[in-house]
Write a protein that binds this DNA or RNA. Structure first.
Length: 262
DNA sequence: ATGTCGTGCTGCGCACGA
């Protein structure tokens, strides 16, 4: 029995609906973590996606951000919002317990703040958010269950995860403090799926719309699956569905899909 | 230095975020 879990920043689910439906029909992932749905819950095209056999939960917001989880299996619990700051109004985190056939799997859809320009208040917010994520992940790891934190982390883990490190040197996605905060998640005991099973350089999940980045092959790898030991042990493959980026009206992000023997 | 998308209002072009 295998379980496939995907993460995809769709950059507006309404603008991306035809692309998303096509990809769901073709890739048939069991669980999908979506980011940047850019709509309130009521605006999410729930019926169209339910028609493909998914249960749907959303944590939406007007215009910006917003995350969702789609699951072919029942969703037992929905936990919107990252703990640790009651005053944070940005919809960037949605956690769920999913009743997979071989037992519960805990999943979170994560849209980590971009943080530019750095330094500045937006970068401070990014680092504070990452600190909250680490503290929450520490709690979740104590549960010792299969856990996958999937999303747009807005962190380029290594220089070889972009086409030109000099372009990104001063950027919030690649600054040493951002990488250190990402590393901290791994030191807690989370395994980054692509690094673990593939690890090749220059395998990108994002190509900016601007400056012909896609045409030039100038991308970055910023969408990641972070797995607890109970999930990492069961990780069988990891794939970046690059084809989606070449479709008309594509998202600037590409789905990343993990297969687990769970 | 710039490039392109998507959203929503100050609205039919602009500001903002990425």
């Amino acid at each position: 029995m295998t379980l496939t879990l995907a993460s995809w920043n769709v950059n507006s689910i309404k603008a991306r609906l035809p692309n998303a439906l096509d990809w769901l029909r073709e890739a048939k992932p069991d669980i999908v973590c979506l980011q940047e749905i850019k709509t309130v819950d009521e605006g999410f095209p729930r019926l169209e996606i339910e028609d493909l056999g998914y249960n749907v939960i959303t944590h939406g917001q007007k215009s910006y951000n917003g995350v969702a989880i789609l699951s072919k299996f029942p969703i037992e619990e929905a936990l919107p919002g990252l703990p640790g700051d009651e005053s944070d109004e940005q919809a960037r985190y949605l956690e769920a317990v999913i009743a997979a056939p071989n037992g519960p799997v805990r999943v979170a859809s994560i849209y980590l703040p971009n943080g530019n320009p750095a330094p500045g208040p937006k970068y401070d917010y990014k680092l504070a958010w990452m600190d909250r994520l680490a503290r929450h992940a520490e709690d979740l790891l104590k549960l010792e269950e299969p856990l996958i934190l999937a999303g747009d982390y807005n962190v380029i883990p290594r220089d070889s995860d972009c086409w030109d490190p000099e372009v990104w040197e001063m950027d919030a996605l690649a600054l040493p403090q951002s990488r250190a905060a990402f590393d901290r998640l791994k030191w807690l005991g989370l395994t980054e799926a692509f690094e673990q099973l593939d690890g090749r350089a220059h395998q990108y999940t994002f190509f900016d719309y601007q400056a012909g980045r896609w045409q030039k092959g100038h991308g970055i790898r910023i969408d990641h699956l972070l797995c607890s030991p109970q999930a990492a042990d069961r990780l069988e493959s990891i794939e970046i569905h690059k084809k989606t980026r070449g479709e008309p009206k594509a998202s600037d992000h590409i789905p990343i899909v993990g297969t687990f023997s769970l």
